[in-house]
């Protein structure tokens, strides 16, 4: 078999020969990023909301104590996952579950778990920030009509928080695409892992990694454009129509 002579020759050769492997890796990467982001955002929203709960001064001591314990536990979770590298978390979860409970979780699931917990920790902080960024008057408006804390959160605060966090969710997804690459340490067969195998076959490291570099970039760039469009659609129209269905209207509005 004739070996390519030039740099680009090698690139073309590797792309052609390992096209399916790259695509399979890409598929796993996307799958990890999508599932990880969705689960991570769910975790983040729940944790962020719970950590933001303002315990009513009139609540019973039992529920206040319970809330304190829950909040403390979640604080520990967030600090640990923000304070350690994801690559280390991946190995600790993957090998730890095995040696502690003799539990051999498939590396893909371990990867998803680590990614989701990681995203959840960061996202919870964004959610907390977004909640505290809402004008306290919104809460008072709800209290004034007699809504409970949970009702105010659900109907008033969270819809606004969610809207403000859409760009953040997009960023998180793009980060997640890149972050999946560290999961190769626990042998998740994502894009970087696929490249590692390919590179080793012909000892063509630069060529191979350049290929996945381009793939990662095209992927994240496309995603960020799509998210921009989505953002604009969700922004909605700023127009509204007056509904003039009763005669007395005009007179009152002018007074």
């Amino acid at each position: 078999m004739n070996m390519p002579a030039t740099f680009f020759g090698w690139v073309a050769f590797l792309v052609e020969k390992y096209f399916l492997d790259f695509m399979r890796g890409l598929g796993v990467t996307l799958e990890l990023a999508i599932i990880g982001t969705i689960l991570g955002c769910l975790i983040g929203f729940v944790v962020g909301v719970v950590r933001s709960v303002v315990v009513d001064q009139g609540a019973s001591p039992v529920s206040r104590g319970l809330m304190w314990v829950v909040k403390a536990t979640l604080a520990v979770y967030v600090e640990i996952f923000r304070g350690t590298p994801m690559m280390v978390q991946a190995t600790v979860v993957y090998y730890g579950t095995m040696s502690l409970w003799g539990f051999d979780i498939p590396s893909f699931y371990a990867g998803v778990l680590v990614l989701a917990l990681n995203i959840g920790a960061y996202m919870s902080e964004s959610v907390r920030g977004a909640i505290s960024g809402i004008d306290p008057g919104q809460i008072e408006g709800g209290q004034a009509v007699g809504m409970s804390y949970a009702q105010i959160m659900y109907h008033v605060i969270m819809p606004q928080v969610f809207k403000n966090l859409i760009p953040q969710i997009g960023n998180t997804f793009i980060s997640a695409i890149k972050d999946t690459s560290v999961l190769n340490v626990i042998a998740v067969t994502e894009l970087y892992f696929a490249a590692k195998s390919v590179a080793g076959t012909y000892y063509k490291f630069f060529e191979t990694y350049l290929i996945i570099c381009v793939i990662y970039f095209v992927l994240t760039f496309t995603m960020s454009r799509l998210l921009q469009i989505l953002g604009r659609v969700l922004e909605g129209s700023r127009n509204y129509e007056l509904i003039l269905d009763n005669e007395d209207e005009a007179e009152v509005t002018e007074s």
Partner: peptide
């Protein structure tokens, strides 16, 4: 009126409040 959330919320639903800064729900 007790400070228990339930009593407090019921009481507030019977007493309307209009604020200087309106405090309308921005998402509705």
């Amino acid at each position: 009126v007790s400070y228990r959330p339930k009593d407090k919320n019921h009481f507030r639903s019977r007493v309307g409040m209009v604020f200087q800064s309106f405090n309308l729900f921005a998402n509705m």
